[in-house]
Design a binder for these strands. Structure first.
Lengths: 316, 316
DNA sequence: CATAAATTGTCAAGTTATTGTATAGATTTA
DNA sequence: TAAATCTATACAATAACTTGACAATTTATG
C-alpha cells in the first residue's frame, strides 16, 4: 500500500472539491486572495491538501454558509486555531487509498471501536481526524459515535470488555461530542430547549447526541444531563420558560417514572412542548402510550426532525 | 494579544440582521443618528460587528420592543455599560488601561456563577469568551472553574439552588473543561497517565481539571472517570502499562476503599507510580497515612506539580 | 384641542467592496 | 496521450456603503 514509506496525508484538489463541496475555482481564489488554506505543493506545483486543511475548509465553509464573509471566516479560523479552540485533526498517516473513495461508516466504526478496546488512544485520535476530514460532525454523531456507544454498552453487558475499558471508551467519545456541542455562537435568540434524563436515569449518551445536533442547527439548548427530579425540573421550567422539554429514559424504571410528569409540570407557565424518547420505549413499546406528551420516535435523527418540526410549527 | 474573544469584530451586517431581526436600513440609521453600536469597519468600509455589539443590539432591541424609544434605550445601554452593569469593557478599552487592570478572577467567578444561577447561558458564553481572550485555559481551570464548581456544590448543599440548576451549571462547566482536554497540542508519545475516581466515587470534577492541566502540558492521559472498581482497573493497568495512576476520592467511603489498592494492583507489571488525592484527604487528614502510594497534596495545582516532578525523575 | 416639531423606520439612486466563475494557454500527472 | 491542474486575467453577481428624502408616529407647544 504505502510505497514510499513517508506517506504524508495529502489529497489532490479534486478530492477536496468532492469532499467539501467547494468548487476548484473557488479554492484557487481563496488561496490567492487569503492564503487559505495554504496547501502544500507537489514537485510539479499541484496543490496537496492535508486532512487538517480539509477540516479547516469544512469549518470555513460552514461559517460562510451561515452568512459570514469568507475573509472574516478565515481570520476567525486562524484566531481560533492559534488559541487552540478549534478542533483540528492531527496530521496522520493516511494511505493513498482514501483518494479514490470515502471509507464506509461501518468500517470506520469498527476501526474506532477496535482502537478504543485496545486502549490505543493515539490510533483513535488518528481515526477521528480522518473521519472529520471527510464527514461532518452531524454525520459522525449519528453514524459513528452513536452506534459505537451502543456497541460499547453491549460489549460490556456481554462481558467482552471490563468496566474500565467501557469507561475509557465512553468518556473518549463523550468528550468529542461535547466539543462539538460547545463551539459556535447561538445564532437564534429566544426560548431554549431543555434536555434532561428521566429521574433515576444515568445514561446520558443519546441525550448528549441530541444536544449536539440541536446546537449545531442553532437551537439554544439548556443541558441538564442525568437524573433530574421532577420537582426541580418544574421549578427550572417555570424559571426559564423553555419552548420545549425533552425527557429521555434508557432503562425501564425511569421510563415508568416519566408517566408522572404532568403531576409536577402541568401547572407551570409557558406550557412548553414536552417530548420523550429513549431505548426504554423501544424495548417496551407499551410504555409509549402510558407517558403523556409527544413520543419523539425510535432514533435520534427521527427525534430531532420531529422536535424541530414541532418547534417550527409553534414559531408561526 | 488575542483577538478571538467576543470583542473581535467579525460579523458582517447581513449576519447581524438575521440574528437580531433589525433590518439593515435601521442599523444604518442607528449608527448615523446615535453612533450605535459603532461597529468597526473592514478595509473597504463595510461594517464589522463583534459579538458584544450583537449583544448590545439585542438588549436595545428588547427595550425598544417593550416600549422605550431608541434614543433612550441607547442612552440607557451606555449608562449601564459605564457602570459595568451590562457589559464588560471591550478589548480595545481594556488594553488602553494597564495590564494590571485585568478584571480580577474573583469578580469573573462571581459573574459567571451569577449568570449560571440565573440560567442565562448566552451571558455565560459571553463571559467565557471574554475570559479566554485574557487568560489561558490553565488559569481559568484553576482560578475560575474549580472554585466555581466548589461554590455550586456548596450552594446546592445549603439549599440556595435546586438540583436542576446545579446540573445545568455543573454540566456547563464540565463541558468547557472537556473541550479543553480534547483540543490543544498532540500529546507526546509514551506511556500514559491513568486518571480514575476511587470505587464508588461519583464526583469527577477535580479529576477532570487535573486531566485538562496534564493534557495541555502534553502528557498522554487515559481518562477513566467516576467509580472505577479495582478489579477492572488492575486489568486495565496490566494492559496499557501506564507511567502513573492517579486515584481521587472526594467522599470518605471511597477514600477508605482506596486503602485496599495494593491488594489488586501491586502484582501488575510495569509498576507505575500510584498517586492519590481529593477533598476526602483534606477533611480527614488521618486517611492520608492509611492509603499506600504518593499523596499528591491539597490542591489541584499542587498535585499537578508533584505528579510532574515524579514523572520527570523517572524519565531520566 | 389643534398644530408644530421631533423622532423614527423605510426607500431609492448611484457607487464601491467582496466574492464566485469563466476563459485561455502552459504544465503536470496517471 | 488524455485528463487534471496550474497561473493569470477578466467579468458578473451579490452585498454593502452613503446620502438624501419622505411618510408615519410620537411628543411638545400654543
Amino acid at each position: 500500500m504505502d510505497k514510499s514509506g513517508s506517506a504524508s496525508p495529502l489529497y489532490n484538489i479534486g478530492v477536496v472539491t468532492r469532499v467539501t463541496g467547494v468548487p476548484i475555482a473557488t479554492l484557487h481564489a481563496w488561496e490567492r486572495r487569503y492564503g487559505f488554506p495554504d496547501a502544500a505543493r507537489s514537485a510539479g506545483g499541484h496543490r496537496l491538501y492535508s486532512e487538517k486543511d480539509i477540516a479547516r475548509l469544512r469549518w470555513v465553509k460552514s461559517q460562510v454558509d451561515s452568512g459570514l464573509t469568507v475573509s472574516r471566516a478565515v481570520i476567525a479560523a486562524r484566531a481560533l486555531e492559534a488559541n487552540g479552540r478549534l478542533f483540528l485533526p492531527n496530521e496522520s498517516e493516511a494511505s493513498q487509498k482514501s483518494q479514490s473513495s470515502r471509507i464506509a461508516f461501518p468500517s470506520l466504526r469498527e476501526s474506532l471501536l477496535d482502537a478504543l478496546f485496545h486502549h490505543n488512544l493515539p490510533r483513535a485520535d488518528q481515526l477521528m481526524g480522518e473521519m472529520l476530514a471527510f464527514y461532518s460532525p452531524e454525520d459522525l454523531t449519528l453514524e459513528v459515535i452513536g452506534p459505537a456507544l451502543n456497541a460499547i454498552g453491549e460489549a460490556w453487558e456481554q462481558g467482552h470488555i471490563t468496566i474500565a475499558t467501557e469507561h475509557l471508551a465512553t468518556n473518549y467519545l463523550r468528550h468529542r461530542l461535547l466539543m462539538w456541542m460547545v463551539t459556535g455562537l447561538t445564532p437564534r435568540s429566544g426560548d431554549s430547549i431543555v434536555l434532561a434524563c428521566a429521574p433515576g436515569e444515568l445514561h446520558e449518551g443519546s441525550l448528549l447526541m441530541l444536544g449536539v445536533l440541536l446546537r449545531r442547527k442553532g437551537w439554544p439548548v439548556a443541558y441538564l444531563g442525568q437524573n433530574v427530579p421532577f420537582h426541580d425540573l418544574a421549578k427550572f421550567i417555570d424559571d426559564i420558560h423553555p419552548s420545549a422539554v425533552v425527557l429521555v429514559a434508557i432503562c425501564e424504571e425511569p421510563a415508568r417514572a416519566l408517566t408522572d410528569w404532568p403531576h409536577w409540570i402541568n401547572q407551570v407557565g409557558g406550557h412548553p412542548i414536552i417530548g420523550f424518547g429513549g431505548r426504554a420505549f423501544i424495548v417496551h413499546p407499551e410504555l409509549q402510550g402510558m407517558v403523556p406528551g409527544v413520543y419523539l420516535g425510535t432514533s435520534i435523527s427521527e427525534g430531532m426532525t420531529n422536535l424541530v418540526s414541532l418547534l417550527q410549527r409553534i414559531e408561526k
